[in-house]
Simulated scan of single mutants.
Amino acid sequence: MSVLTKLTTAEAKVFLRDPGAPAIVIGIPLALLLVFGLLPGVNEPNPEYGGHSVLATLIAPMAITILLAMLALTLFPTAMGTYREKGLLKRLSASPVSPSLLLAAQLLVNLAAAVVVVVLIAGVGGLALGIPLPGNPGSFLLSLVLGAVALFSVGLLVAALAPTGRAASGIGSALFFPMLALGGVWVPKEKLPVFLQHVADVLPLGGTLNALRATWAGDAPELLQLGAMAVFAVVCSTIAARVFRWE
Rank of each mutant, 00 (worst) to 15 (best):
T82F: 13
P61E: 12
A105C: 09
I66A: 12
T57L: 06
S139P: 00
G51I: 01
A167E: 13
V154D: 05
L16W: 15
T164W: 02
A21G: 03
D219R: 12
L205E: 09
T78I: 03
M179K: 07
M229E: 07
P188I: 03
E247F: 07
A241Q: 15
G207W: 00
E247G: 13
V109G: 02
A200V: 05
L223P: 02
T215F: 14
L129E: 04
L39N: 14
L151G: 04
A105R: 10
A60G: 05
A23D: 00
F36I: 04
K90H: 06
P178Q: 10
V118N: 04
A181Q: 03
E44R: 10
L88T: 15
Y83I: 01
A23R: 02
A168F: 00
H52A: 11
L205H: 08
L133G: 15
A12T: 15
C236T: 15
A56V: 08
E190H: 09
G170H: 09
L89M: 12
M80V: 15
L142R: 06
I239N: 07
F152Q: 02
V158W: 02
P178L: 12
L16R: 05
A220T: 11
G20Y: 10
T9L: 12
L30M: 10
R245D: 11
V35L: 15
A56P: 01
E247P: 00
F140P: 00
I64R: 01
F244A: 03
L196R: 06
P29H: 05
S139E: 06
V42K: 01
V97D: 05
H198T: 08
M62W: 01
G41R: 09
G135C: 08
E222Q: 15
V54I: 13
P47R: 12
V14I: 14
L223Q: 12
L32F: 13
T78F: 00
G87R: 11
R166N: 10
A114L: 13
L151K: 08
A105D: 09
L111S: 12
L212V: 01
L92N: 04
L58T: 10
T9D: 11
L73D: 04
A23S: 13
L144P: 03
E247Q: 08
R17F: 02
